[in-house]
């Protein structure tokens, strides 16, 4: 187990390196720069700024400097929010993103699994068809479409919930819906498919033949096996929630790190974008590892030696 974890973590290093290098050089290809503004600074002031932030060095040297900083746990200063280090901003925004993402993933799991099981038990009934077609829509419509529609209908026309901001419980509702909808859909479809398969397996039939009531058969025997694909889907689901939150936080003006990512890109705040990218990258790698380990705990057929 420990050996497996170490091996996976070791494998994560090159992955992270590629993420860092890709983001670093792509960011610099974008036109503009962190100090471009309507009131253009005179060339000598720009030179002073470039020097202060080491932007006057050759690109490879800047890259090495950045890597060296990362190794020492330093994400560098933000170019735009000059009073803050990137690490301050990330760790300030992360609790917000974590709350939002945590609620969304928990809701997606509860609702998705329930819906999936329900549809599987009533296979080929109208409930099955209805919930599966709705979830097909959920998968197909991305959250940058869902979020503005929610804002428009529930926020602006019905005026039921605030359209943005953070702090009150009512602020959570729309962004959480926008974030978890596609995940509910995916989880429901996964659960349904595996539940149907499990229900027709020999051990479930044996249980039924022994005279065990249907409820107990399902809750004691079927669910545990049926949920396995959902567990292995958790890694990608968390990645989906994280990338989704970039869009959703921006749309709903939520002060999480997803918003910093968008603002940082628009402002060409190189270090901020890099910081968020590295942080997200590491987070996704870690979540995938946890999901895999969990899989081993739940599935007796899988052993990590």
């Amino acid at each position: 187990m420990l050996h497996y974890v170490m091996r996976r973590l070791g494998g994560a290093v090159p992955t992270l390196f590629i993420i860092i290098a890709g983001a670093f050089f792509m960011m610099r290809l974008a036109p503009g720069g962190p100090f471009a503004r309507e009131r253009r600074v005179p060339p000598e002031v720009e030179a002073n700024l470039m020097k202060a932030y080491h932007l006057d060095e050759p690109l490879w040297q800047q890259f090495l400097r950045y890597l060296n900083g990362l190794l020492h746990g330093d994400f560098g200063p933000s170019f735009k929010y000059k009073d803050f280090a990137v690490a301050d901003l990330i760790f300030g925004g992360f609790p917000v993103s974590l709350q939002l993402g945590g609620i969304a993933i928990a809701l997606a799991l509860v609702i998705g699994v329930t819906l999936g099981i329900w549809a599987a038990l009533r296979q080929n009934s109208w409930i099955d068809y209805a919930s599966m077609s709705v979830s097909m829509v959920g998968i197909a419509v991305p959250n940058f479409v869902v979020a503005p529609i929610l804002t428009l209908v529930i926020g602006l026309q019905l005026q039921l919930l605030p359209v943005g901001g953070w702090g009150r419980p009512s602020h959570y509702v729309l962004p959480v819906i926008a974030l978890c909808l596609p995940q509910i859909a995916a989880i429901a479809r996964l659960t349904r498919a595996s539940m149907i398969e499990v229900l027709s397996s020999n051990y479930v039939r044996t249980a039924r033949a022994k005279g065990l009531p249907a409820r107990l058969t399902i809750s004691r025997h079927a669910i545990r096996a049926a949920i396995l694909p959902v567990v292995s889907y958790l890694g990608p689901a968390i990645a989906g929630i994280i990338t989704g939150s970039v869009v959703v936080e921006q749309i709903f003006s939520i002060p999480g790190i997803g918003r910093y990512f968008v603002q940082g890109s628009l402002n060409r705040d190189y270090t901020l974008v890099m910081g968020v990218t590295v942080f997200y990258g590491a987070l996704v790698i870690l979540c995938n590892l946890i999901a895999d380990l969990l899989y081993g705990v739940l599935d007796p057929k899988v052993r990590y030696d």
Binding site: R39, E44, V45, N48, K51
Partner: peptide
């Protein structure tokens, strides 16, 4: 110049 103020001018 070490402060590199945008508005120095």
């Amino acid at each position: 110049p070490a402060i590199a103020a945008d508005y120095a001018p």
